[in-house]
């Protein structure tokens, strides 16, 4: 069957199925299971209202449980077993094997670098962009142009930046901007993506370029939410623009800065597409998610692959706990 047709049918079946389920399950509940008539009318209404939330929640709960909660457990179990041995329990063997691979440690080191550099740089650029664009008339246009890379896929962005890092032999014109500038300044053409260690930063630039717009949008809203009196009071006290920015504004939006920082951190922890498309982890640019993909789908080593996925989960854990605690506090 033509996939497009299949898609249309799926939409109809999916949407129709959802509506049908919600409508019919409500109908059955009200008309047949606990009808609000007869001598138990009041009791039945109460019972129906006890059941109804779960009718509303059921599809979502099943989907969440099956597609997100169960895999965490299953992956943990896979990381403790050996696929070649028919899924036999091997304890921590996969983890030990992973720890002995230099590529794993390279991935850990690079992920840490990414974790430090990208959120910091994107938040800083975003903050600068937000502060500057808020003060000028055409700020909204500027904002949407800086925000634009957000809509571009990581792979598309990788193609865009690969052109910038392109290298031609020394006797030809350079078609990559970076080399054109470098040669213009008197250097020899470099293959930027193969320079050990520094190539990581050339990859990070791509993500910073994408995430700055996100940081800018959120921080700009926060900056606008600052009560004007605090700024005016500072001006009356003789504070300069930089003092106002760093001593009055930034402290007041610290909460938002933390949120932006952690959101970008989550993106960084899962970074995969950019590395796959630009270097595929060669020349010392491996990261955890790509390492995991290598293990799972190229060497078909599910044990080690799942173990590295658990490492990513472990790194996400602090943010997860912090988020849950924040929400629990708000719910009370």
């Amino acid at each position: 069957m033509n996939p497009a047709l299949q898609g249309v049918i799926t939409i109809i079946v999916g949407v129709g199925g959802c509506i049908g389920y919600f409508f019919l399950s409500n109908l059955v509940l009200d008309k047949f299971v606990f009808p609000p008539v007869g001598k138990h009318a009041g009791r039945n209404i109460n019972r129906a209202n006890l059941v109804r939330p779960w009718l509303f929640l059921l599809p979502a709960v099943i989907a969440l449980g099956l597609y997100l909660a169960y895999p965490v457990v299953a992956t943990f179990w896979l990381s403790l077993t050996d696929r070649d041995a028919g899924g036999a329990f091997v304890g921590a063997a996969n983890y030990v094997q992973m720890m002995n691979e230099p590529k794993f440690w390279e991935a850990i080191r690079n992920n840490m670098l990414w974790l430090i550099v990208v959120p910091a740089a994107a938040t800083a650029f975003g903050l600068i962009a937000a502060q500057l664009t808020d003060r000028i008339a055409w700020g909204n246009i500027a904002k949407s142009l800086i925000f634009m890379p957000m809509a571009i896929s990581f792979v598309g962005a990788s193609v865009i930046w690969k052109l910038i890092y392109d290298t031609r032999p020394a006797d030809q014109d350079q078609i990559g901007v970076l080399n054109a500038i470098w040669v213009g300044l008197g250097g020899d053409p470099q293959t930027w993506l193969t320079i050990p260690f520094w190539n990581n930063f050339f990859l990070m630039v791509v993500l910073i370029w994408i995430q700055t717009g996100f940081a800018m949008v959120i921080l700009s809203a926060a900056l606008r939410g600052i009560p004007e009196e605090t700024v005016e009071a500072a001006i009356v006290d003789g504070a300069g623009p930089f003092q106002i920015f760093f001593k009055i504004k930034v402290p007041q939006i610290m909460g938002t800065i933390v949120v932006v920082w952690t959101t970008i951190t989550l993106v960084v922890l899962k970074i995969f597409d950019i590395v796959l498309a630009m270097t595929n982890g060669q020349w010392g640019t491996q990261v955890l998610a790509n390492y995991m993909y290598d293990k799972l789908f190229r060497s078909f080593d599910w044990g080690v692959g799942s173990a590295s996925a658990m490492v990513i989960m472990l790194l996400v854990m602090p943010i997860l706990i912090w988020n849950v605690r924040t929400v629990r506090k708000e719910m009370r």
Partner: peptide
């Protein structure tokens, strides 16, 4: 909590 669970964990299962 599920909002931040990396979908990498879900692939094989």
């Amino acid at each position: 909590a599920l909002l931040v669970v990396p979908l990498q964990l879900a692939l094989i299962p």
